[in-house]
Amino acid sequence: MKKNMLTFVFAVGTLIFSTQLSAQENPLSVGFKAGTGLSNYRLGGDMKSLKSKMSFGGSAGVFIKYDLSPNFAVQSGIDVYYNTSKLESLTDKSSDKLKSFGVEIPLYGIVQGELGSGKAFIGAGPYAGYGISTKLDGVNLYKKNNGTGTTMNRFDYGVGGIVGYDFDKNWQINASYKFGLADLHKGKGGSMKNQGASIGIAYKF
């Protein structure tokens, strides 16, 4: 009886292990992604006299995903973005468009599961960014202008989330949101923090 029980347990364990192994046969995937979205800045302190209105932008990049199990994965990559936001004065209603160009590296922990003929997923994690150019009325705010110091910090960081659906082994749709924690404004008494939402598509290899 004990021998039969041990044989049964061993057979079940072997079956589970082989199922997990086949599911994880190719746990690593890479791909390209592109999207469009809206972004603006959360303003505080002395900058509350301005309002940052959301405007359209876009991004493109590559990503790498590693399935730790059928239901959990980690994903990272690099995105090149172009964001715009309209800064409007609350006193005289004058406005200028802020145009930003840079790169971001997100890192998501992802929970995923079968849904219909594909796979749904949701994830969250930190991101870090580096601004290459941010211009207001043609002036690059990362550089010294007319003998004055720089106005904005290049380095950004924060947290973000992503949700999406894999239609098959290759195509995916997703939506993401980022919430910046770094104060990008160098001036004293004011604060300027990034935020944005986007939708996109991806192709995995």
Rank of each mutant, 00 (worst) to 15 (best):
G57T: 05
I132S: 01
Y82W: 09
F56N: 13
R42L: 14
L90C: 08
S100G: 05
D67M: 11
G31I: 12
N140Y: 07
G125T: 11
T36Y: 14
S89V: 07
E88R: 11
Y130I: 11
G116T: 04
T148L: 09
Y41E: 06
Y127I: 10
T36L: 15
V139L: 05
D79H: 03
K93H: 14
Y66F: 12
L107I: 15
K48N: 15
T36C: 15
S59L: 13
D46G: 08
N145K: 09
V103G: 03
T84R: 15
L141D: 01
F56C: 10
G45D: 06
A60D: 12
A124D: 12
D137H: 05
G58Y: 12
I78C: 06
Y142F: 14
K53L: 15
S52E: 06
G149F: 05
M47G: 10
L98D: 01
D96W: 08
D137S: 12
V139D: 01
T134S: 07
K143S: 08
P70L: 01
D46Q: 12
F72W: 04
E104H: 09
S85M: 06
N145G: 00
A60N: 07
G61T: 08
N40K: 13
N71E: 02
K144T: 13
L98C: 01
N71V: 08
G149S: 13
D79K: 05
P126C: 11
G131S: 04
T150Q: 13
Y66P: 02
G129Y: 07
D92R: 01
A60F: 13
V80S: 06
L141Y: 02
K144G: 12
P126Y: 06
Y127C: 09
F63G: 09
T150H: 08
S55L: 08
K48G: 14
F121Y: 15
F32H: 09
N146Q: 12
L98Y: 09
N40Q: 13
D137I: 02
G113L: 03
T36W: 13
T148R: 11
Y108P: 11
K143P: 00
G45K: 02
N140V: 03
G123N: 10
M54I: 10
A73E: 03
G125A: 12
N140E: 02
E104S: 14
T148F: 12
D79E: 13
K119G: 03
K144C: 07
M47Y: 11
V30C: 14
K143L: 04
A124L: 14
F121D: 04
K51H: 10
G125M: 14
G102N: 01
K48C: 09
N83Q: 11
G35Q: 12
S39P: 00
G129I: 10
F32W: 13
S55I: 05
A34H: 05
S29T: 15
V80Y: 12
S59W: 06
I64W: 08
K93P: 05
N83K: 13
K135V: 00
